[in-house]
C-alpha cells in the first residue's frame, strides 16, 4: 500500500442545481467508511454554477470537492458525465465510489464501472468495512456490500476482492443524513472540462421535471398497503385512514406492480426507506425487501389475516384479521378517542 490515503468518493447528484438528498446521505455514510479506512472523503460535483453546492459537501464531512463546472454540463447527460467521472476515477483510483440508486445514478454508475472495470453492486442496504478471507486469501479492509437477493429469500454480502475500485449504489433514505455541527475546512478543486463531439451524440430537446409531490421520508405517520389489500378499490381505504390520523399513504412493490399505487410511494429496497414515528402495514406479508425499507420505524402496527406473515416478526402491535374490517374500526376508535 502506498502512503497516499485511501479515498472514498461520493458522486453528488443535482437537478437544476438542487442536490439530491441521497448524495448527502451517502456523504454521511462515506465519512464513516473513510474513518474506518483512515482515509479521506471526497465529493465529485458536476454541473454548472455549483460552487455553493461544492462547499455544502463540507457540512457532511467531505475534505475535498472535485468541481467540474461548465455551462454545457447544466443538465445531466450520460455521455459527458460518464466520460468525466471515468477519467477522474482512472486518474485518482479511489478505493470506493458511491452513487445514489436514482435515475441518474443508475444510468451513470454502470458506465463508469464498465469503463474502469470496477465491481459495482446495486441497491445496497448496508455498507461496512471489514477484513475478509476469500478462497483462502486475506484481503484487508474490503467494502462489504450487503443487499437482499433472490426475491428476498437471502441476504447476500458482496465483495470485490480484486477490484482496485469498489462501487455501490444505494437508494434514497437507506443511509441517514447527518450534518456536522461544524463543517470540515475543505478544499474545492476545479477540474477543467473540454467538450468533445461524442458528448453531443444524445441531445435533450425537451424536459419536464417537477419537485417531488410526496416526501415519504418526512412523514411522521405512514399507512402502507401490500398485495393483500386485494384490489385497487380496497386500497383506497388506506387514504381514509391516512386522512383521519394525519399520515401519508405508501405501498409495497407488489402493490405498485399490481397498479394499486404509484412507484413514487413505494417503500422498500427498490423504493424509499422510511423511519416514521408510526408505520401501519396493511395486507403486507413482509418480504425482506420491504422490511429493509421500514423496520427502523419507531412503532409498527401490522394488520394481516395470515398469522404466519413475516411482518408480525418486526411489528410492535399485531392484529390478525381482515384489513377491510379492522381499518374502519381503527378509524372509529381514533375519532372517538381524539376528537
Amino acid at each position: 500500500m502506498s502512503d497516499t490515503k485511501q479515498q472514498v468518493w461520493v458522486f453528488i447528484e443535482q437537478r437544476e442545481g438542487k442536490p439530491a438528498d441521497v448524495s448527502f446521505e451517502l456523504l454521511s455514510k462515506g465519512r464513516k467508511l473513510a474513518e474506518s479506512l483512515r482515509g479521506e472523503l471526497k465529493a465529485v460535483v458536476i454541473g454548472h454554477d455549483l460552487q455553493d453546492l461544492a462547499v455544502e459537501t463540507f457540512h457532511y464531512g467531505a475534505t475535498e470537492a472535485l468541481l467540474v463546472d461548465h455551462p454545457e454540463l447544466e443538465h445531466y447527460s450520460t455521455l459527458p458525465y460518464s466520460r468525466i467521472m471515468s477519467q477522474l476515477v482512472d486518474e485518482h483510483r479511489p478505493r470506493i465510489v458511491l452513487f445514489g440508486a436514482s435515475f441518474i445514478g443508475r444510468d451513470l454508475a454502470p458506465r463508469v464501472a464498465s469503463h474502469t472495470r470496477s465491481g459495482l453492486t446495486a441497491d445496497c442496504t448496508d455498507l461496512q468495512i471489514s477484513d475478509v478471507t476469500y478462497l483462502r486469501k486475506d484481503y484487508p479492509e474490503l467494502l462489504l456490500q450487503i443487499r437482499p437477493a433472490f426475491g428476498g429469500n437471502i441476504i447476500a454480502t458482496i465483495i470485490c476482492p480484486d477490484s482496485e475500485v469498489q462501487m455501490a449504489t444505494v437508494r434514497e433514505g437507506v443511509m441517514e443524513k447527518i450534518p456536522l455541527d461544524r463543517p470540515v475546512e475543505g478544499q474545492v478543486t476545479q477540474v477543467a472540462y473540454t467538450p468533445e463531439e461524442v458528448d453531443h451524440l444524445v441531445r435533450i430537446i425537451e424536459r419536464h421535471h417537477e419537485d417531488a409531490k410526496v416526501n415519504l421520508k418526512a412523514a411522521p405517520i405512514i399507512v402502507s398497503g401490500g398485495y393483500g389489500m386485494g384490489n385497487f378499490q380496497n386500497f383506497q381505504i388506506l387514504y381514509e385512514l391516512a386522512h383521519a390520523i394525519g399520515g401519508e399513504v405508501a405501498g409495497t412493490r407488489a402493490a405498485v406492480d399490481a397498479g394499486f399505487i404509484d412507484h413514487a410511494r413505494q417503500v422498500g429496497q427498490t423504493g424509499v426507506t422510511v423511519r416514521p414515528k408510526l408505520y401501519i402495514a396493511c395486507g403486507i406479508s413482509g418480504a425482506i425487501q420491504h422490511r429493509a425499507g421500514m423496520s427502523d420505524s419507531n412503532k409498527i402496527i401490522a394488520i394481516n389475516d395470515d398469522p404466519e406473515a413475516p411482518i408480525f416478526s418486526v411489528c410492535h402491535y399485531g392484529i390478525v384479521g381482515d384489513v377491510m374490517a379492522v381499518i374502519p374500526m381503527l378509524i372509529d376508535a381514533y375519532k372517538h378517542k381524539l376528537k
Binding site: 465491481g119 475478509v132 476469500y134 429469500n153 465483495i159 477490484s163
Partner: peptide, 13 residues
C-alpha cells in the same frame, strides 16, 4: 467478475 458473493444468509425471522 469483479463482484463475488462472500456470504449468503437465509433470512431467518
Amino acid at each position: 467478475s469483479p463482484t463475488k458473493v462472500h456470504r449468503i444468509e437465509s433470512v431467518v425471522l
